[in-house]
Design a protein around this nucleic acid. Structure first.
Lengths: 213, 213
DNA sequence: TTTCAGATTTCTACATGTAACACTCTCCAT
DNA sequence: ATGGAGAGTGTTACATGTAGAAATCTGAAA
């Protein structure tokens, strides 16, 4: 069942199962070539993770995020990932720092034009920081929120200026982590997520619809 | 299945299924008088909620919390419930405030001696604040963390002085909420949870084992 | 008494059966 | 043409079947 759940989760996060798609247990079981039991269990767990929602009387469908949902998620991520960054600064091993640097270098290259890769690497960056914080529950909840946010695809701001700006902020965070400066890492992470949140908000405000700043 | 899950959750939180108890699907199905399917699904969801854990090769058992787990949980609650309190201050209806006051009055009475009722009312207090914050995901995650913490039973500090102290701090939080002072509510909530966390930590430190301050 | 091999029981994980229910489509009456 | 009854389809939720693995128990030999 773990396998089925991972497959479904990947399909959702990759967009193969778009937000709003109905998750019919018999249908998915046929497509995946397994029985309905593991599929049903996997779907229930995905609901628990927030990636799918039970429509009353209509079965389960992939979660559809409104702007308000994205703002909710950012507010939580600011809090949790800020905390995680502070602790990560004191606990990161050299291996972690090397991995982080690798992700950032790849992201620097992707920042020009390849928004898809950029988002993937962005996710990896935040994941490394959260998973290194030493608080297993913090890591778990931060991962849930970050994953849920990946359903927001079309609401995100993908303009080249925004990508480069995010990348610079990631560098700032990485610098604080490398210097083992917890408070600086926390502030940098909070500032980063706050600014991105503002970008999303303004990008979807009634009177501002270009993707440049 | 929702029914079965709620029954199991209640049984766990009430201590009828003590931490470490094995959750055998066939056994529980027999006891609850239903088939194995809904029980299996409920158990999987409880694992997702953190109330149970999958032991590799040994099935599922009710989660067992160490001191370190409780400290992790407090750190997260400080962050999330602080945030929730700030928003709750700006969104609480009069009805909510009346309910909160009611809980505190009952708690004031229970603070002398009845640790069990006190904990129950403590949980209700924090629940009201979290559920009123206006951020559905914040409410959901705060509820998960608060529930998980209820598994810590024997680790908690139940001395009368601590109960009264907690109650006073709840009053301070309620005052800030009533005055719609967001920052004050956040600070009061953070201070409260921070102090309780310190109490737990010191109560279990190697050289301090009395329950008085 | 201790130890180890085999038998027995129990569990998990997946597959499949089925009743009740909600949707949709068709076709007839107005 | 339109509205509504009713068949047909698909789904959910629960029940049950079963293979394979793990734990435990049993009993005989050292």
């Amino acid at each position: 069942m773990d396998v089925v759940r991972d497959q479904l989760r990947s399909a959702i996060l990759a967009g193969d199962l778009a937000p709003g798609s109905r998750l019919s247990v018999p249908e998915l079981a046929r497509q995946l070539g397994v029985s309905r039991s593991p599929v049903r269990e996997a779907v229930l767990l995905l609901v628990g993770e927030g990636l799918a929602v039970e429509q009353s009387r209509r079965g389960v469908e992939v979660a559809r995020l409104e702007l308000a949902d994205v703002l909710e998620l950012y507010e939580l991520r600011i809090s949790l990932e800020g905390l995680a960054a502070r602790h990560a600064a004191e606990r990161m091993t050299n291996t972690d720092l090397v991995a982080l640097r690798g992700v950032l270098d790849a992201q620097g290259a992707a920042a020009v034009g390849d928004a898809r890769s950029f988002r993937e690497l962005d996710h990896r960056f935040h994941e490394i920081v959260s998973q290194t914080c030493g608080n297993t529950r913090l890591a778990r909840h931060a991962a849930l929120l970050a994953r849920e946010m990946r359903l927001a695809g079309p609401l995100m701001v993908n303009g080249p200026w925004h990508l480069r700006q995010s990348h610079e902020e990631h560098r700032t965070i990485e610098r604080a982590l490398r210097q083992r400066d917890g408070p600086a890492a926390e502030n940098a992470m909070r500032d980063h997520l706050t600014r991105v949140c503002q970008s999303v908000r303004h990008h979807h405000s009634p009177n501002h619809h270009s993707s440049a700043p």
